[in-house]
Design a protein around this nucleic acid. Sequence first.
DNA 1: TCTTGGATCTTGACACTATAAAGATATCTG
DNA 2: CAGATATCTTTATAGTGTCAAGATCCAAGA
Lengths: 219, 219
Amino acid sequence: MCASSSDEHNSDTEKTRRYHHGDLRQALIRSAEALIAEKGIAGFTLRECARRAGVSPSAPSHHFGHVAGLLSAIAALGFSDIATAMEHAQDQAQGNALDELQAIGEAYITVAMMNPPRFRITFGQMPLDWNNPELLHEAQRAFGILERQVRTIRGDSGAGDPVLDTQAASVAAWSIVHGFSTLLLDGRLNRFSVDVDPEKSVKNLAQKMLKMLINGIEN
Amino acid sequence: MCASSSDEHNSDTEKTRRYHHGDLRQALIRSAEALIAEKGIAGFTLRECARRAGVSPSAPSHHFGHVAGLLSAIAALGFSDIATAMEHAQDQAQGNALDELQAIGEAYITVAMMNPPRFRITFGQMPLDWNNPELLHEAQRAFGILERQVRTIRGDSGAGDPVLDTQAASVAAWSIVHGFSTLLLDGRLNRFSVDVDPEKSVKNLAQKMLKMLINGIEN
DNA sequence: TCTTGGATCTTGACACTATAAAGATATCTG
DNA sequence: CAGATATCTTTATAGTGTCAAGATCCAAGA
């Protein structure tokens, strides 16, 4: 994932700044996430990303076209992160289908917490290019895992009340983990009565929430 | 310099363009929401708002200070909408505490659907000024209603499993309705297997989701 | 080895944007 | 009727995304 000679193209040092960066695409993605981590979404700027990568303002256009191109590439990584983390969690909790869904949901939240800038880009309101095939593919992959798991459960439990159908259950699962992640990352939770300071208590809270929903789904 | 009195063709109505707008504050709020409804969050611009209100680019600063001021005023309206709609729903469904929570949750989603631009501002990533006392107050009011309702329920049902405590339940309720609203408004649901085209089916889906969660909470 | 085509980056320019300072105008108060 | 004050305009500054044209490097083919 890194270049062959890693100390060659650092921006802030006065190392011979080459005309060709060598790995600009990756560098810009890193710059963008670091920038958002520092100054928030509002502080994101394509020019500043280029500046941090040690490159001219219009260099990014040759790799991503426009801003949405860079953001879409990052969003694709975001969906990929979620999908692979879900798959991993699913494998770990193998056996009980309900436990697998619980693990999948927790994985979603964990990924959001691990890289907030990436999650904000993936699910924020900044423009994305949904014609990007990679983005589209990874997004469908992520949601597919969750939906398949819910379908498995509802197939198992024999579906009592027809009102509680599979679609509603999968959307409910997605909504609860997504809503929690969003509220948490935007600092909406600790602004009010909820104090979720230590990281442990966040995961604990997420566990409880999911238990409630899954408890409601299986019945 | 512009014509002071007689000739006017700038505004859509018969209003003569005066030096003093008369109700610029409200006009800017309306312009902002209309603009976002048309061109999305990315198309929002303070200058364009001023343009639509028929005033100079820096006129808004005298009413809101900076961009975050205008957005915060709108966000305060957003929280107020949610709070009052929740209170209304609570009154309508009076009697069963569980039905009340269900109604409160549905109200949240309905408000989001009724005025998407306002909801996007209220819960989006654009900068807000949380020193704005009105914004803070309305936000606390909204969450307070939901939390009090959950507390009522858990007091009623006698709280069996201590794992499923009140805090987790209220956050779960907030998360599921907020997550659903966000995913819906950002077009993330109908992009995949879920097709929520007719408005009726959206409310139906929301009902089912909430039923599942509440079912899980009361047990 | 030398040349040449294509990918990569820079320069320069344009039309935007937010915001601040200072001047112009209307409304309100005494 | 006069000041004072709130409201809006003008003007200016610094920053932004994107485009077109030029500069530079790399990697084949002769």
